[in-house]
């Protein structure tokens, strides 16, 4: 009991207590300063930088500032930095062996940051997943799909996969594939298709709409109408061009054929017998067949 109070008193008012207090104050000040610095960077560079770069800069400033204050706090508590760093090195090797996948994801993440194939807010297609990029993190990229699902894709997968960024360029091309009957006059069909493109205000005048004859199909002559639209109007253009083309073909009497089948019984067989009747009722036709 005699030694207890002096010990408590030394803990509370001694040098060590002040060191702990100073360390706590340093961590607190570091946290506040890191928040302030990162928010100020947002305000300062908000207009010049993309959202993706802003998030990166904010995180970098926050963790660097906080890290410096944490190191100072540890020094206040009497830890030697060189020993800590040495221990951290050994720990890194051990953790690295134990978590190869995570390390691979982190390194892939760094490559992604450098290469910058997309930014936060872009719409991307990765394998069969299409969605808006919510965040690009150290281990993974988070997407929100159009049916409102949250998808996490590891950075390692991204590095190995084909990634399509749909919102990179301001304009996009839409290819309308359509087949017309063999009896149709192809130059006339082309004229009608170009008129459809010309009268649609969403369809860009330049780059000019183009028509490509894809070839003779099984039942139709296949044609491709390629039109361009502003990225934001792409879906509206896609819908309207289908509607307009159908209406224009109906008006011009251009046939979009169903698949045709010609049945051939072979040279050694008799032809398939066909009887044509006029004015027969459906029941009589059924009897005849």
């Amino acid at each position: 009991m005699d030694t207890f109070w002096p010990q408590v008193s030394e803990w509370l008012f001694g040098e060590r207590a002040f060191a702990v207090l100073r360390a706590l104050l340093l961590v607190l000040a570091g946290f506040v300063l890191a928040k302030f610095v990162s928010s100020s960077a947002l305000r300062l560079f908000g207009r010049q930088m993309s959202q993706h770069h802003l998030i990166l800069l904010k995180r970098l400033l926050f963790y660097t500032t906080l890290g410096l204050f944490l190191v100072s706090a540890l020094r206040e508590l009497g830890f030697k930095l060189s020993v800590l760093l040495g221990a951290a090195g050994i720990l890194t090797v051990a953790v690295g062996f134990a978590s190869q996948t995570s390390a691979s994801n982190i390194i892939s993440g760094l490559f992604l940051l450098g290469e910058r194939p997309f930014s936060v807010g872009d719409v991307v297609k990765i394998d069969n997943t299409m969605g808006e990029v919510l965040s690009i993190d150290l281990l993974s990229v988070k997407l929100k799909t159009y049916d409102n699902l949250f998808v996490r894709i590891p950075n390692e997968t991204l590095i190995k996969s084909e990634v399509t960024t749909l919102t990179r360029f301001p304009i996009r091309r839409f290819d309308l594939q359509i087949g017309v009957a063999y009896k149709e006059d192809i130059p006339h069909v082309n004229e009608v298709l170009l008129q459809v493109a010309d009268s649609n205000p969403l369809c860009l005048e330049e780059p000019a709409p183009a028509i490509i004859i894809q070839g003779f199909g099984e039942s139709s002559i296949n044609i491709q109408l390629s039109v361009w639209a502003a990225r934001s109007n792409f879906l509206a253009l896609k819908n309207s061009i289908y509607i307009d083309t159908k209406a224009a073909f109906d008006q011009a009497g251009i046939e979009i054929p169903y698949p045709h089948r010609t049945i051939y019984a072979g040279s050694q067989s008799d032809p398939i017998a066909v009887r044509v009747t006029r004015g027969a009722s459906p029941e009589q036709e059924a009897d005849l067949s």
């Binding site: 990179r168 360029f169 301001p170 304009i171 010309d198 649609n200 205000p201 969403l202 369809c203 860009l204 005048e205 330049e206 780059p207 361009w228 639209a229 502003a230 109007n233």
Partner: peptide
Amino acid sequence: PSDTWFGASTY
């Protein structure tokens, strides 16, 4: 009015 693109390339 119809939209159009004015530039050296499509990007």
